[in-house]
């Protein structure tokens, strides 16, 4: 099943009189269960494409479809609904809410989705076990290491059983062992749950985990290739 489809998507940023063409007509299709890396140099449009697919931003032209639904021209609240129902995010910085514990951070999307207390408790417990942090449930982000925080962010992204998880440079702020741990968790969850991962990176240690690599340059896809070998760190 096609989880993501972009058709001739462009995104132009205007700052004063200056226009920047971040995307110049991107056509991309992602199937369910894929573990795809979006690579390219800085300024190639990786983050912009993730933001458009993640309904965090709207394209200047073209069409974006997520999970079979055209999300191109949805209003603010409709986009929030799509994010809450279908998309999980893992950001480059450890995007946890500092006043909430690991448990509460993971629970937040479930609350927003209106899940019952017992459903939430069960799901958060399961996710904490999946990311090997059941004993850190009541720790605040500042009491966790960078790698642990990013694993909590992965668990939060996965909480609602999304069709798609978008990760923007998920290991950029992590050292090699922690980066490997996070990628291992993501790979394992992709295999075990079948959730689709699309992550932007330019870290070669991360790219080797991908089964498909899409290369962007100057706002255009210049290469799209399947990688046959299994993930190295898995």
């Amino acid at each position: 099943m096609e989880v993501v489809k972009t058709e001739n998507v462009t995104r132009i940023y205007r700052v004063g009189d200056v226009e920047t063409n971040a995307l110049r007509g991107v056509n991309l299709s992602i199937q369910s269960g894929e573990f795809t890396a979006l690579i390219g140099p800085s300024g190639s449009g990786k983050t912009t494409l993730l933001q458009l697919i993640g309904c965090l931003d709207m394209p200047t032209s073209g069409r974006v479809t997520v999970n079979g639904k055209d999300v191109t021209n949805l209003n603010r609240n409709q986009r929030a609904d799509i994010r809450a129902e279908s998309i999980g995010f893992v950001f480059q910085f450890f995007a946890l809410i500092p006043t909430l514990t690991a448990y509460e951070n993971i629970e937040m999307p479930l609350l927003l989705a209106g899940k019952s207390s017992s459903e939430r408790a069960e799901r958060v417990k399961q996710l904490l076990e999946w990311i090997d942090l059941p004993d850190r449930a009541n720790y605040r982000p500042d009491q966790l290491s960078g790698g642990q925080q990013q694993r909590v962010a992965v668990a939060r992204a996965l909480a609602i059983n999304p069709a798609l998880i978008l990760a923007d440079e998920p290991t950029a702020n992590l050292d090699t062992p922690n980066g490997r741990q996070v990628m291992d968790v993501m790979t394992r969850l992709n295999k075990e749950t079948g959730v689709t991962f699309l992550f932007a990176t330019h870290d070669p240690r991360v790219i080797q985990y991908a089964r498909r690599v899409v290369t962007l340059q100057d706002g255009l896809i210049i290469k799209d290739e399947l990688v046959e070998k299994s993930a190295v760190g898995a």
């Binding site: 993640g54 965090l56 603010r76 609240n77 929030a80 609904d81 994010r83 809450a84 129902e85 999980g88 995010f89 950001f91 995007a95 946890l96 809410i97 937040m108 999307p109 927003l112 989705a113 939060r156």
Partner: peptide, 9 residues
């Protein structure tokens, strides 16, 4: 972040 994970206005 809250908005990104689906919190409405």
């Amino acid at each position: 972040i809250l908005s990104a994970i689906g919190m409405k206005s």
